[in-house]
Write a protein that binds this DNA or RNA. Structure first.
Lengths: 263, 263
DNA sequence: ACCTGTGAAGATTTTCACAGCA
DNA sequence: TGCTGTGAAAATCTTCACAGGT
């Protein structure tokens, strides 16, 4: 069985606009769009803080590093309604995005592996503040069990099943060494966790109905290294390229490009 | 850069963009493929450790969670030569991948922002071990300046330009708060850094010739939250789905149980 | 007999471009 | 006039399926 980074259970055709009880259309949203929606949400939050009340798709797209048409299409997936000739009202759009991303419901997060990286994740303020409280910590090291971080005590991995059930964990984060990751993943899945964020350098095999997203630091650096190398090759190879690049660089000295996401 | 009217954000498309105008290909490798190449490299490393000498595309693809045809196509971008009827020799393929990803040359990394997350990144063993030594640390907090982590002293951000030049930094990592990220990014670019890995919750604006990759923890969690919510909606809507999901869960509950280790 | 490398088909995502409304 | 929402075209990525080695 294969697990593309985001093998959603929704290989499901379901083109038809199935309608949920509430009446909102449950249309399939491309994974890439979901990622961008989360991005727009943050940018909108910043705009709201500044007191901005409306934005055009051009403005919001610019601030998000995205093509305006793409932004409008992304919003269309969640049935957003802007005002023609004006743009979008920041506050309502923000609420709409939160709702569409399922942020109205609090998601309890469990973190397995409180080593170097795990410790930082456990203490990361960005989580709790955004509706993702870390409610459980696990490690296999007896010296760590019982230690508290941000008011949460570390439990032994053997307690995973019980603790996750008790605390209603819906999202699992894995920050163990690579060899341990699959085992931990299996346990989380057995506990009913269906969404996993994996920081361990390992490819996780999971059932079809489980979503895994991966953050792989080594891979990120290697991808950048590839670009460094390619840049050297390109420069060494074509004088024409060098000229073109220099020209482009000069032109861009003033105007800037926007670069968005990854993962 | 080249022709495309718009340098797309997101997973920066025109990677091989440097297709020589009148010259040789310098074949462009799709960004998605580059990411997977890095993944194959890791899996191959594991195979090599186990003493495996050859793998078929099926096996390697399975272990990487990827479709075999896709794997072969990915490898074809870097002109890999397997042996028909047999597969790939692990060691040569591993070397080939390392070379193609530019890992033969050591990349010096600078990390800006030694807070909660930054501290963990500075101590992350996976970097140095993979040819990405962190050679410089920066922060704006006077209390941190002078502190050493893993033998590297933290410098003040004001020293960024000098230190990066002295130590030949080629890759920058940003782990500052969101508001500080753009400023830091500008400084890195001014120092000649052309590849940046951004952990800060901010969209960075950079010139065309700079590659940015982003790791955004809040976005990752929100994407997972979206899937949790969608799953609930789907379950509430389609009774057939519920049955199928329950069955899948049951089957997997009986699945292997592995006692995991943790750091 | 088996497995790679790849053209071509298929699927998905991005972008264009314009109708339609405020 | 200005900007959204969206059908359709373009670009990109994935998968199939098979020719061609070993």
């Amino acid at each position: 069985m294969t697990l593309p980074p985001h093998a959603g259970p929704g290989s499901d055709p379901g083109i038809g606009g199935a309608v949920a009880p509430g009446g909102s259309p449950l249309r399939s949203v491309p994974e890439a769009s979901v990622v961008r929606l989360a991005l727009y949400l943050r940018v909108l939050g910043e705009l709201a803080e500044q007191g901005t009340e409306t934005v055009s798709s051009d403005e919001l797209a610019g601030a998000s590093g995205v093509n305006p048409a793409k932004l409008r299409k992304d919003l269309s997936y969640i049935g957003s309604y802007g005002i023609r000739g004006v743009g979008y009202e920041v506050a309502p759009l923000l609420r709409h995005l939160e709702h569409s991303l399922g942020l109205t419901q609090r998601q309890a997060v469990a973190l397995v592996g409180v080593g170097n990286l795990g410790h930082a994740l456990a203490g990361y303020a960005g989580f709790a503040g955004n509706g993702f409280p870390v409610v459980a910590l696990f490690d296999i090291d007896p010296d760590l069990v019982g230690v508290g971080i941000n008011g949460i005590l570390i439990d032994h991995v053997d307690e995973l099943r019980r603790v996750c059930a008790e605390r209603g964990v819906t999202i699992g984060m894995i920050a163990t060494p690579g060899q341990a990751a699959q085992g931990v993943c299996d346990q989380l899945v057995a506990c009913g966790v269906r969404c996993i964020l994996n920081f361990a350098p390992a490819v996780l095999q999971v059932p079809d109905d489980v979503d895994v997203r991966k953050v792989d630091l080594a891979v990120e650096l290697q991808v950048l290294a590839f670009h460094v190398a390619r840049r050297h090759l390109a420069a060494a190879e074509g004088p024409l390229n060098v000229v073109a690049q220099a020209a482009a660089a000069a032109i861009n000295g003033a105007g800037r490009r926007v670069t968005g996401g990854t993962s």
